[in-house]
């Protein structure tokens, strides 16, 4: 690991200023330290966010407010989170290991980098995310874990967060603190898709920090569920996942929110699936018919073609789970 200076700001505003001046942020450190040990990232200045991030988890009539400094494990086992948004509890409990969850923060979880093996191997020359303009070794390479939606000839990496997929389905809002003040951002604006600049992953401005996450409490959030499909039963990244919330009245689907993970370059909202569910009877036939829309626009790159086969199956199962809870 390259040596660096650890800067300790006294508050969020100062942290944002240090970030805007070129310091790299570290919060829980679970992803940043992996990347630094592998020489994927070599910051000479780290700005320690841990003392200035809010770790509180609060539940009120409007929903949940999760401080960005809250640890994954604390959120995962919080009874109010499980009551208001069980999809969040499920997504977090199926993420990482207890040891990692005790360190990793919620803000850092949203900003963790892709698990693409070419991105994480500094010895690989071609990676447009790591070295803009150098190419993409995953296209034509080992790409079993890679994306089928939102890709380009530049990059086919997925975003690895389970939590982010649940937040997209629940239409969460991020509170941001930046060098020029605070602002709110809908979660679906956080991540970019890329045609030309895969190294630009988010719409955060220089120095901007995720300070808190607001999750609205609705009938739909209380029924939403998270389903994860992976290579081993625990401590493994999603190959595919789905966060699904349904509002069912008199046996008919009135509202639906559907997002998938592991299939897109960012957590992928499935609006065509949602539209196909509205007004339909809440049964397995409707779920299967709607889930077929999930693959619209999907492009396989070789080893990841199985994801297109699995997408409607995983989604139909997740819809049945959420339908059973609704």
């Amino acid at each position: 690991m390259q040596s660096f200076t650890l800067q300790r700001p006294s508050g969020l505003a100062e942290a944002a200023r240090l970030g805007a001046e070129g310091g790299e942020f570290i919060a829980g450190g679970t992803d940043m330290l992996q990347l630094m040990k592998e020489w994927v990232r070599t910051p000479d200045r780290l700005v320690d966010l841990d003392p200035v991030l809010d770790p509180r988890i609060e539940a009120g009539p409007q929903g949940l407010r999760i401080g960005a400094g809250a640890r994954m494990e604390a959120v995962a086992v919080h009874p109010e989170v499980a009551r208001i948004a069980p999809a969040i509890s499920e997504a977090l409990l199926e993420s990482a290991s207890p040891q990692v969850r005790n360190l990793a923060t919620m803000g850092g979880n949203l900003l963790q980098r892709t698990r693409c093996g070419y991105f994480r191997d500094a010895g690989v020359a071609a990676c447009n995310k790591r070295r803009p303009g150098s190419g993409c070794a995953a296209i034509g390479g080992e790409n079993r874990i890679h994306a089928v939606l939102g890709t380009s000839g530049q990059c086919i990496a997925t975003h690895p967060s389970d939590f982010a997929v649940a937040l997209v389905a629940l239409e969460a809002t991020l509170h941001l603190a930046g060098p020029d003040g605070e602002r709110d951002m809908p979660i679906h604006h956080l991540y970019r898709t890329w045609d030309t600049h895969p190294e630009q992953e988010t719409n955060l401005r220089p120095g901007e920090i995720i300070a808190a996450i607001q999750v609205p409490a609705t009938a739909l959030s209380r029924n939403a569920r998270y389903l994860k499909v992976r290579d081993r039963a625990a401590f493994e990244w999603a190959l595919l996942s789905a966060a699904v919330g349904l509002e069912i009245d008199g046996g008919t689907v009135r509202a639906a929110r559907v997002a998938m993970g592991g299939v897109g370059t960012k957590p992928w909202r499935m609006r065509a699936v949602e539209a196909a569910l509205i007004g339909k009877p809440a049964n397995d036939d409707s779920y299967a018919a709607a889930a077929a829309h999930a693959t619209e626009g999907a492009v396989a790159r070789g080893e990841n073609a199985y994801k297109i086969t699995l997408m409607p199956r995983v989604l139909a199962r997740a819809l049945a789970l959420a339908g059973g809870a609704a």
Binding site: L6, I26, G29, T30, L33, Q34, R71, E73, P98, Q99, V100, N102, L103
Partner: peptide, 9 residues
């Protein structure tokens, strides 16, 4: 809390 000491500065 249990943690990975390799991931803590």
């Amino acid at each position: 809390k249990r943690v990975n000491s390799c991931l803590v500065l």
